[in-house]
Design a protein around this nucleic acid. Structure first.
Length: 313
DNA sequence: AACCGCAACAACCGCAAAGGG
DNA sequence: TCCCTTTGCGGTTGTTGCGGT
């Protein structure tokens, strides 16, 4: 663990939201050098952040394989079930949700699911037939949840949890076919609500094919306002060639999860927003050509371990 | 139009574990 | 074995946007 060779100059680290330029620097650095000592990353990447912040940014937003968008019913149920079993072990819970980060799960729980579960709990407590806090809906779906957990890793063909399989896929396959295992075609009712950030900053042959031409990355308007207001906005950021990140992912951030009461409404809106480049038919999109074919995949992904966030280089 | 409250979520903080010297 | 550093995790806060009044 220790990385004594990483001598870090004392400096005033920048805080707050990450700018597109910072994201780009971090991404470029990691793509070029792989992951090693996080504390050394900021200096080497030319970032005025601490290593911790870089790590968090990578894990939660830049790391390939991340899924964006609303949680599906199945994912919700998995979270509820596992939270009940494991408590607030968000990293462990996230392992069962391919493409979801512990932070995302935690936020989703705190902002939405917790209240919902409490509501359901109070409702069901009035129902003598139900000793469980889960909803009847949830209870009936539990068997399906188990199946989801057991099978969603599918493409990997190994034995670990879905998340593990996913990362294993990334790491072992060389070709990036990782998005496919995320998509449980049998279970994900709201599949078109999902975003695969994986594809966002990896222009792929299929993505380009799906929306050829500059307009493929012309979604800069969806840069999140939070970032926009930080003063670091580069409105044209999304329209990149040199910039490996399309603004699609940021659009996804902006347009997902908002107002769950309005999910159905948002659902349609978001589908439109995320339709280019990052969206659901991800299986074919990510596999094959594209930016990552230019990279040494082993360098980038070879270090993915069975742990959700772990990279070993 | 202005204000207020709430929801969502990105990011920070603090602690504990792990590992190297 | 101890000390120091890094990493990982969970809790919490800060910021922003939206909807209601």
């Amino acid at each position: 663990m220790g990385c004594r060779s990483c001598d870090k100059p004392k400096m005033n680290y920048r805080k707050g939201l990450w700018s597109p330029e910072e994201d780009q620097r971090l991404r470029d650095y990691i793509l070029k050098h792989g992951l090693g000592c996080w504390s050394a990353v900021p200096a080497k990447a030319g970032l005025q952040r601490n290593g911790k912040s870089c790590r968090l940014r990578w894990i939660n937003y830049l790391r390939p394989g991340l899924k964006r968008g609303m949680f599906s019913q199945e994912e919700e149920d998995v979270v509820i079930n596992l939270q009940a079993k494991l408590g607030n072990k968000w990293s462990q819970i996230a392992m069962h949700l391919p493409g979801r980060t512990d932070n995302e799960v935690k936020n989703y729980w705190n902002s939405y699911l917790k209240k919902r579960v409490m509501q359901l709990g109070s409702n069901s407590s009035s129902n003598p037939a139900s000793k469980n806090s889960a909803s009847p809906e949830l209870l009936t779906s539990m068997s399906a949840n188990t199946e989801l957990i057991m099978t969603s890793g599918g493409g990997g063909g190994s034995t670990a949890t879905s998340t593990h399989d996913h990362d294993a896929n990334i790491g072992s396959s060389g070709a990036v076919s990782a998005a496919e295992p995320f998509v449980d075609h049998q279970h994900h009712q709201h599949q078109d609500a999902k975003n695969y950030v994986f594809a966002d900053w990896m222009p792929t042959a299929a993505a380009v094919t799906a929306a050829p031409g500059p307009e493929s990355y012309s979604m800069s308007a969806h840069w999140p306002a939070s970032t926009a207001s930080s003063g670091n906005v580069t409105p044209s950021h999304g329209a990149f060639v040199g910039d490996q990140m399309s603004a699609t992912s940021y659009g996804a951030l902006q347009h997902t999860h908002q107002h769950h009461q309005q999910q159905e409404h948002q659902h349609h809106h978001q589908s439109a927003v995320t339709a280019v480049g990052a969206h659901g038919g991800a299986a074919g999109m990510v596999a094959g050509g594209g930016y990552f074919d230019l990279l040494n995949m082993g360098d980038i992904y070879g270090g993915f371990t069975t742990a959700n966030d772990d990279l070993l280089f």
